Computed example of a mutant assay.
Amino acid sequence: MRAFTEERDWAQFHDPKSLILALTGEVGELAELFQWLPADTAANRAHEGHLHQRAGEELADVLLYLVRLADVLNIDLAEAAHRKLAGSSARFPAQEVHGQAPEKS
């Protein structure tokens, strides 16, 4: 993403606020694909055809903006994800929460 951005001289537009707004917009586009689908059929309908293709495109946009934002903020996403998962594992031990939706704290 950095090389792609630098080749186009777009770094000047990639401040954190602008990237967060772009990321939010892409998440919105992904949500729009599923907005009116019945929850019990959404996953099956998304496995093939046009919806599958569009969902992949929007997920790619989300990923690319997220990766670019992490780069601009100098955050190692893999490390941050591992730390977050370790913290969540401690907060929600599998044997205590198995099959239950976590409560907000």
Rank of each mutant, 00 (worst) to 15 (best):
Met1Arg: 06
Met1Pro: 15
Ala3Ser: 15
Ala3Gly: 09
Phe4Gly: 04
Thr5Ala: 08
Thr5Leu: 02
Glu6Asp: 14
Glu6His: 05
Glu6Phe: 03
Glu7Val: 04
Arg8Met: 13
Asp9Ala: 12
Trp10Tyr: 09
Gln12Thr: 02
Phe13Ser: 12
Phe13Gly: 09
His14Cys: 08
His14Lys: 05
His14Arg: 05
Asp15Gln: 07
Pro16Asp: 02
Lys17Ala: 07
Leu19Lys: 07
Leu19His: 11
Leu19Gln: 14
Leu21Cys: 10
Ala22Ser: 13
Ala22Phe: 03
Thr24Tyr: 11
Gly25Ala: 10
Gly25Tyr: 06
Gly25Leu: 08
Glu26Asn: 10
Glu26Ser: 14
Glu26Thr: 05
Val27Ala: 15
Val27His: 05
Gly28Arg: 14
Gly28Lys: 15
Gly28Val: 14
Glu29Lys: 10
Glu32Tyr: 12
Gln35Thr: 03
Gln35Met: 09
Trp36Lys: 09
Trp36Arg: 10
Trp36Thr: 02
Pro38Lys: 14
Ala39Pro: 00
Ala39Ile: 01
Asp40Trp: 03
Asp40Gly: 02
Asp40Asn: 11
Thr41Gln: 14
Thr41Asp: 04
Asn44Arg: 08
Asn44Phe: 03
Arg45Asp: 01
Arg45Thr: 01
Arg45Ile: 00
Ala46Met: 06
Ala46Ile: 07
Glu48Pro: 00
Glu48Ile: 06
Gly49Pro: 02
His50Thr: 06
His50Gly: 01
His50Trp: 10
Leu51Cys: 02
Leu51Asn: 01
His52Glu: 13
Arg54Lys: 15
Ala55Met: 04
Ala55Ser: 06
Ala55Glu: 01
Gly56Cys: 09
Glu57Thr: 03
Glu57His: 05
Glu57Phe: 00
Glu58Lys: 14
Glu58Phe: 11
Leu59His: 06
Leu59Thr: 09
Ala60Asn: 09
Ala60Arg: 12
Ala60Gln: 11
Asp61Gln: 13
Asp61Pro: 02
Val62Asp: 03
Val62Thr: 07
Leu63Met: 10
Leu64Val: 06
Leu64Thr: 06
Tyr65Phe: 15
Tyr65His: 08
Tyr65Arg: 02
Leu66Met: 12
Val67Gln: 14
Val67Met: 14
Arg68Leu: 15
Leu69Trp: 02
Leu69Gly: 04
Ala70Met: 10
Ala70Phe: 05
Val72Glu: 02
Asn74Gly: 13
Asn74Lys: 15
Asn74Val: 11
Asp76Gly: 01
Asp76Ile: 03
Leu77Glu: 01
Ala78Cys: 12
Ala78Ile: 13
Ala78Gln: 15
Glu79His: 14
Ala80Phe: 07
Ala80His: 11
Ala80Val: 10
Ala80Arg: 13
Ala81Ser: 10
Ala81Asn: 07
His82Val: 00
His82Asn: 04
Arg83Asn: 12
Lys84Phe: 12
Lys84Gly: 04
Leu85His: 02
Leu85Thr: 04
Leu85Arg: 01
Ala86Gly: 02
Ser88Phe: 07
Ser88Glu: 04
Ser88Met: 10
Ser88Gln: 05
Ser88Ala: 12
Ser89Val: 01
Ala90Val: 08
Arg91Leu: 13
Arg91Pro: 00
Arg91Glu: 10
Arg91Thr: 09
Arg91Tyr: 03
Pro93Val: 07
Pro93Thr: 08
Pro93Arg: 06
Ala94Thr: 01
Val97Ser: 10
Val97Gln: 11
His98Glu: 12
Gln100His: 14
Gln100Gly: 04
Pro102Thr: 00
Pro102Gln: 01
Glu103Ile: 03
Glu103Tyr: 08
Ser105Leu: 09
